[in-house]
Simulated assay, not measured.
Amino acid sequence: MTSPIRVLICDDQALVRTGFVTIVDAQPDLEVVGECGDGRTAVDLARRLNPDVVVMDVRMPVLDGIEATRLLAGAGVEHPVKVLVVTTFNLDEYVYEALRAGASGFLLKDAPPAQLLHGIRTVATGAALLAPEVTRQLVGKYAARIRPPESTPDDIALTPRELEVLRLIADGLSNSEIAARLVISQETVKTYVSRILTKLDLRDRVQAVIYAYRNGLAT
Rank of each mutant, 00 (worst) to 15 (best):
I210N: 04
L91Y: 15
A114P: 01
G105D: 05
V81S: 13
L71M: 06
I146M: 12
L200Y: 15
A180G: 02
T22M: 04
L217M: 02
D171P: 14
P51I: 03
A212N: 09
R47S: 06
E162F: 01
Y94I: 06
N215E: 00
P153T: 12
G172K: 13
K190P: 11
R70E: 11
L130P: 01
E31S: 08
P148K: 05
A131R: 14
L163H: 11
D52G: 00
Y96S: 11
R161W: 15
T152E: 03
P51F: 03
N175T: 12
D201I: 09
T88S: 13
D25R: 03
P113N: 04
R59A: 02
A157Y: 01
G34F: 13
A131H: 13
D25P: 00
R203L: 04
K109R: 10
L107T: 09
V16I: 11
V54K: 02
A101E: 11
V43Y: 01
Y211S: 09
A144Q: 08
R70I: 13
I184T: 12
V139Y: 03
I5N: 10
G37Q: 03
Y96E: 13
P160V: 09
T122E: 10
S104L: 12
R181D: 14
R121G: 04
G39Q: 04
A143E: 00
P28T: 01
L202N: 06
V55G: 14
Y94E: 12
E177A: 15
G102S: 11
R167A: 02
T2D: 15
R40H: 02
R147H: 12
S194P: 02
L158Q: 07
P51W: 05
H79Q: 13
S3I: 02
A68I: 14
V62H: 10
V86Y: 04
Q137Y: 13
V33I: 06
E97H: 04
I169G: 11
E78I: 14
S104K: 05
G37D: 10
S176L: 07
H118N: 13
E187M: 15
